[in-house]
Structures are given as structure tokens and as C-alpha cells.
């Protein structure tokens, strides 16, 4: 019986989700319908958290717009999210980057991941 629910959920899940982690800078392409028109909105920022699992997994992206912090939470499997592009991988030591909210200016900078370093560590 529970399989029925798993099946219904799996059907809706996207097959390919780009690999991205907390601390990465991403571009999220969101479909927005204004009356009859459809357009794609791109929201760029740092991923500060990933929550939940399966169909209900969400991630939060934070960016600074005109000096004001803006955060948006997106459901990963939502059909309105057409693409997630990682532009920069960040190196962080927390699962949730909520500390960025208290910081301004240069302190909000997340260190870039050293390429190759993580691979050799494994």
C-alpha cells in the first residue's frame, strides 16, 4: 500500500538534478506566468540551506539586492524550476549558512572550493 505513494512521488521527481551543495552560487531559472505570457526569471545567489528529502526537498538561495538581503526558497522538484546552474562552488563547514544573514559586505563572501583538493582527500 505504501508503495503506491512512493510510486506517485517517484513519478513526479525530476530524473536529473544538477549536483549542488550549500555554499555554491547558483542560477535558478523559474517559470513565471504573467496573465497569458510565460517568462523565465533567473534568481542568482548563494545556496544557504537544503531541507527535506524526496519530492518535498527544498533549497534556499540568498542574494543582496540594492543593499537588502533577499532569500527565496524553491522546491527542487517543482515543474516551475526549469534549470539550476552552478556558477561557483563554495567551500563551507556548515550545513546551513544562516550566519550570512548577520553579515554585511565582504564578510558575506564564501571561499571558493579548491578544485582537485577534495578529490585527492577521498
Amino acid at each position: 500500500m505504501a508503495k503506491l505513494i512512493t510510486d506517485i512521488e517517484n513519478e513526479q521527481m525530476k530524473q536529473e538534478i544538477p549536483q549542488f551543495n550549500v555554499g555554491d552560487t547558483v542560477q535558478v531559472h523559474v517559470n513565471i506566468s504573467e496573465r497569458e505570457r510565460q517568462r523565465v526569471h533567473v534568481f542568482t545567489g548563494i545556496v544557504i540551506s537544503r531541507k527535506g528529502s524526496g519530492l518535498r526537498e527544498t533549497f534556499t538561495v540568498r542574494r543582496i539586492v540594492a543593499g537588502e538581503g533577499v532569500e527565496r526558497t524553491f522546491p527542487i522538484h517543482s515543474p516551475a524550476i526549469t534549470a539550476i546552474k552552478v556558477t561557483r562552488s563554495g567551500s563551507v563547514r556548515r550545513a546551513k549558512l544562516y550566519y550570512l544573514r548577520e553579515r554585511v559586505g565582504k564578510a558575506t563572501h564564501v571561499k571558493a572550493k579548491q578544485s582537485g583538493k577534495t578529490k585527492s582527500a577521498k
Binding site: I5, S33, S78, P79, A80
Partner: peptide, 14 residues
Amino acid sequence: KVGMTGVYTEAGEL
């Protein structure tokens, strides 16, 4: 009754 879950609409609403 099997249980509850969510279904996304095309607009992205769960």
C-alpha cells in the same frame, strides 16, 4: 485510505 502526499501543478504549486 492509503495516505497523503503532494502533487505538483504545472505552475509549481504543491
